[in-house]
């Protein structure tokens, strides 16, 4: 009887060890899951003012081939204090991250945001062109 108990316990312990030693799913430097997805594009873009109300005068035009986002904003928009919002393909992330209010007032030098695919192997820089 004791013999069977010992065998059962041993099998259980080995199973636990095997399970605990299983390699975790890979994550990137931000702790985000690295997946197999290769899609890498911006699907939607929004620009909010300091009151978190849109400052767009029209829908943003996203060109995934030219990798540009063209936005026309309302006259008088304070571009030093805006909040850009990107909607990306599944599992993608943005570089640099948008962590708060952003200064996009330098229209002569459009800001570039890079979309990184879910497998973290494809990087596509999008140029954000803003005009009044």
């Amino acid at each position: 009887m004791t013999k069977y108990l010992k065998i059962t316990l041993s099998i259980l312990m080995i199973s636990v060890i095997i399970v605990s030693c299983k390699k975790d799913s890979p994550v990137d430097e931000d702790g985000l899951l690295i997946t197999f997805r290769q899609e890498c594009f911006v699907s939607n873009f929004e620009l909010l003012g300091s009151d978190f109300v849109t400052v767009r005068a029209a829908t943003a035009v996203i060109d995934t081939l030219a990798q540009t986002i063209n936005v026309t904003v309302n006259p008088g928009t304070d571009l030093k204090n805006v909040y850009p919002q990107f909607t990306l393909a599944t599992d993608c992330k943005l570089d640099p991250k948008v962590i708060g209010k952003t200064d996009l007032s330098n229209l002569a030098s459009p800001k570039i945001y890079t979309v990184v695919s879910g497998n973290r192997k494809i990087r596509k820089p999008y140029t954000l062109n803003i005009k009044f």
Binding site: S50, N74, P75, G76, D78, K80, N81, D103
Partner: peptide, 9 residues
């Protein structure tokens, strides 16, 4: 900081 001196709309 860096706020504008006008508020429209």
């Amino acid at each position: 900081v860096d706020m504008p001196n006008y508020a429209l709309g």
